[in-house]
Design a protein around this nucleic acid. Structure first.
Lengths: 235, 235
DNA sequence: ACCTGAACACCGTTCAAGT
DNA sequence: ACCTGAACACCGTTCAAGT
């Protein structure tokens, strides 16, 4: 009966509470720790209770994606399309750094959730308002590709590895082993150049933020150049 | 004893045979059907027999990635860096279309397998040979990002959905439902523009190949412009 | 020494029995 | 009508028993 009282006092389950708990669990323990059973335990609830609010695990993941996409800052207005989109993509990137599981989750689902559609819709709207034709806007959305949701795409991303294998995480960037450097000299050369930059001799850590903005601006500048030149679809 | 004879006649297990069977299974039935147990059954072998040749499922996936990365055409020489890299990235894209599970698999692992390193190394070598500084090459590798392994990144990719949910696959591109079009007008406008292009009124199919090459060339042209201008790292 | 069946500790989800 | 324990059909992997 103490248990019954406890049960009555407990915040009632809701889809929203489930989704927020699921995001927190994935953030904290890694996406591979997110099972219906673990999530139920976290919520002090029997596993089957979740199924009253989400149809299955796929719908749970869709809901989680909607939650985190909702965290991306809205588009600002009153400036050119380029700074507005730049700001927004960088905001998406920050969101994805808070939720390391999200980029893979978004990519592995078909993305037709309202929040994602709304995000894409406003992004397209900004490009159109900036004077790009529908054709150019269409192709640009494809070209921005993963960047549009801020995927960091670091090739040897420690954060991603952390996201996969739980909360052990923050390994320092590993130095390039000599046998690897010998076999793959070009990789070694780039790693060495990157090391010089941040002063460390062995570390091959890249400045993620710089790399991200470099790529983003490369694309944005190319797009602006096409717009200036009055690009039209090849027929 | 008939079984014993059968067993003796059977091609002996080997890491290579396991990897090729695993790739075939993932290609045919989808990556979610690739379990150690299913794979063993496909090979007419008890599940535990696989563990003599691969340490665990993660190593199996790494091996599969090496197999498919090995299918990418080698770099050609005797032309500029831009056409050479363009050709190679397009070859990687073809590989990924043959193995729809591969891009997600590659992205979700840390990629430090010999085959992937070799691929990246030769790519870096071509950029260096083309006259890019180590700094610029480094940033360009990040900028090419997912494109470098040919990820198609189609936003609503039917093929990817197929890859996830088994061999049911080739759904025709779904028309945009009216309630979606009303809620997300910019998405609708782009979908309409794309439909006009290929003549179909309802279909929102994009020309994947065109989109891919558009994005690729946007990046390659931007990179070439930086090289011409003698780009150096901001200090 | 090698191979392998059974077992362990998990999954997502169904379903029927309990309230 | 609602909730939920047990069960089902799976996992990857360990381990000890069999040859």
């Amino acid at each position: 009966m103490a248990e019954q009282a406890e049960k009555l006092r407990r915040t009632p389950l809701s889809r929203d509470r489930i989704l927020r708990a699921a995001v927190a669990l994935a953030d904290g323990a890694g996406i591979e720790s997110l099972s219906m059973r673990n999530l139920a335990q976290e919520l002090d609830v029997v596993p089957m209770a979740l199924y009253k609010h989400v149809a299955n695990k796929d719908e749970l993941l869709d809901g989680m994606i909607d939650v985190v996409v909702g965290e991306i800052d809205p588009l600002t207005s009153g400036e050119g399309w380029q700074p507005a989109i730049r700001r927004r993509v960088l905001s998406a990137r920050q969101m994805l750094r808070r939720h390391p599981w999200a980029s893979l989750a978004i990519e592995s689902r078909n993305m037709a959730t309202p929040a994602v559609l709304g995000y894409l819709d406003s992004m397209i709207g900004a490009l159109r308002a900036g004077g790009l034709s529908t054709d150019l806007t269409h192709h640009v959305m494809h070209a921005l590709g993963s960047r549009i949701l801020g995927f960091s795409q670091e090739l040897f991303d420690a954060a991603r590895q952390a996201g996969r294998s739980g909360p052990i995480a923050p390994q320092p960037p590993a130095p390039l082993p000599p046998e690897v450097a010998l076999r793959f000299p070009h990789v070694a050369e780039i790693a060495a150049a990157a090391s010089h930059d941040d002063g460390s001799v062995v570390g091959q850590g890249c400045d993620d933020q710089f790399e991200f903005e470099f790529a983003l601006d490369l694309l944005l500048d190319g797009i602006e150049r096409l717009r200036e030149q009055g690009w039209t679809a090849p027929r």
